[in-house]
Design a protein around this nucleic acid. Structure first.
Lengths: 337, 337
DNA sequence: ACTTGGCACTCAGGGGCAAGGAGTGCCAGT
DNA sequence: ACTGGCACTCCTTGCCCCTGAGTGCCAAGT
């Protein structure tokens, strides 16, 4: 029902509109792309495309603008992900290689991605529950206070201060620490509750209340909290775009952790690259923005996601290329550290 | 040279302009404020105020608008800091009391301040070099790898992985850890280099290379890095303000850590409340914004600063009240934890 | 020496109007 | 099935004029 030329017309409309930000007319199209037919023919094709809902005109006697549905078709069938230039690859490498801890990796990544795409970048911290334990440390800091430090294989470090119900001896702490490490070493955090289930039994009866407290804090830290740590950068890039809706709504959405989380979507396997266009987004205030997101992680399994948010009128092939490249590279960095 | 009535006129102009965002004329002034004189008189006063540079008119036949100099006079001599309402105080308390670690305190604070003032809030993490050591932990995580964890009296936790030049025994680590804690306990980080200067001499010769490595990493962590960790929130509040300059410039400035740091100014004593108006700001892109900032900390000494950025046309008394209240409260929270 | 009312002047903002131009839909011809 | 021609729509721009808010100045009053 849509022959090749109509698809080519749609592609041309998307490309022109993205680069000029102005409704594109039939005459301009034949001039800028060598379609080999006359404007009138294009007009007929456009009428069909409009009827099917792929494009629309802001008002009679204006050119055409792609609809969300039009962008969707473009992304799915009419475009290919554009690989980064050599210079861009080098930039990623040099910029990310300087990072010295997880915080630094994430903050560099988000700034890099924002700069690369000239849009708003969003990066989720590696999910705790999908990471594995590298080391658990238990340090007495006061009479009835322990510091719990948890280090994951993604370099993430969590700490919590624990108030113990009773004073604990150095030896008890050492014993508990050893037990914890034995139970948990290399264990995925999501499986931690199971791994420590029978731990209390291995503790001397006197220390059981303390052990219970420590365990409950530990599990709470892993499961409940921080699952949703997420940052963004590049808000300045929104400023020169004129949204149909208010810029304020978009900024507000960006400052809500929960919204950001849902925006990136669920982490699937590492290589998944997803595009959400306009109203496909799960948030009201982002009706006129699109999100390009990818999972990243150390192996096949994605630990978390990162992506880019911009106007629906964005350069999808280029953005997808950048997001994919950065996601891969961050994965390598995390694996290597 | 400026009699009482002229000052009253200036105050009225500032207040009206802040609330209406429109140049204020002589007639409107006498109507809204009971000045007891006629518009013509006010006009004469205005002419004087304009000549002296406190107000200006966007164009002939428009009302007057305060200049930076006018706001400065207003802040210095014509206004008093407005205390928060009981409801606002309660809001601060309940919102901040739920925090469970430093990250959480800071992120809650910045969001709270943004909401309270309806502007952009900026909060600097407690400066490392001004904090004191509460505990140093040294954990072997692999054959030639140690994890260094540093806990400060502000609840800040820093960690670094250290590659040692040679394998280290458990005992050596324990010994080194004990030494470090003896030297550093309660010590201000800024004084740490002095405190550990003679530490290598107390280490057995075999362990000296390792000790040296650990020390260099420790000092590097304290001094070099992280000094400038800083966050902001509430960018959405900028959206409905129309800046004379581009919004983009402001957003860009906000995303530069260095600029933010200079914006808040140097931490002085705890109670200092500073206001920077328009061109008094050290950054080009922020010519038409003002910053209200205060130090916060556990004792008299400020550990860091926090503040608010908004258009020069802001409610100074209210903003100053909010910033001061939040700064005090955060200090209490940190001291108590 | 201030203060005041009166008055002429300035200028941004908005409505109305016409010209220009980009783009469309439709139709008849090839 | 494509194309050229043509009438039509309607946004945009520029222009003009008017209105209203606000000013500066002056002369008179206290």
């Amino acid at each position: 029902m849509l022959d090749d030329r109509k698809l080519a017309v749609l592609r041309a409309i998307v490309e022109d509109y993205v680069s000029t930000n102005e409704p594109v007319g039939s005459k301009a199209l034949v001039e800028r792309h060598s379609l080999g037919v006359s404007p009138a023919t294009i007009r007929n094709d456009m009428a069909v495309l409009e009827e099917q809902g792929y494009i629309t005109q802001p008002h009679t006697s204006a050119g055409r603008v792609p609809t969300d549905k039009g962008y969707r078709l473009f992304v799915d069938r009419l475009s290919t992900i554009k690989p980064l230039s050599a210079a861009e690859r080098r930039a990623i490498e040099t910029f990310l290689n300087g990072a010295y801890d997880l915080d630094d990796v994430v903050s560099r990544t988000v700034r890099l991605l924002a700069q690369l795409t000239r849009q708003v970048a969003v990066v989720q911290y590696p999910s705790l529950s999908r990471s594995a334990v590298r080391h658990v440390e238990l340090v007495p800091v006061a009479d009835q206070r322990l510091l719990l430090v948890l280090i994951t294989n993604t370099g993430r470090v969590e700490q919590r201060v624990i108030e113990t119900p009773a004073p604990v001896s150095e030896e008890s702490v050492a014993h508990l620490r050893a037990l914890l490490n034995t139970c948990l070493d290399g264990c995925r955090l999501a499986e931690a509750p199971g791994a420590v289930a029978d731990l209390p039994e291995q503790v001397p009866p006197d220390d059981r209340p303390v052990a219970a407290t420590v365990l409950s804090v530990l599990l709470e830290t892993l499961v409940e909290k921080h699952e949703e740590k997420i940052v963004f950068a590049g808000a300045a890039n929104l400023a020169h775009v004129d949204f149909s809706q208010s810029l304020r709504e978009v900024l507000e959405a960006l400052e809500e952790q929960v919204v950001l989380m849902r925006l990136l979507g669920e982490a699937g396997d590492s290589s998944s690259l997803t595009v959400r266009i306009g109203t496909e987004n799960p948030h009201e205030g982002l009706r006129s923005t699109s999100v390009v997101a990818a999972g990243y992680g150390v192996g096949d399994q994605a630990l978390a996601r990162l992506g880019v948010l911009g106007p629906t009128r964005m350069d999808y092939p280029g953005t997808m290329g950048a997001v994919r490249a950065v996601a891969r590279y961050v994965g390598q960095i995390l694996a290597g550290s």
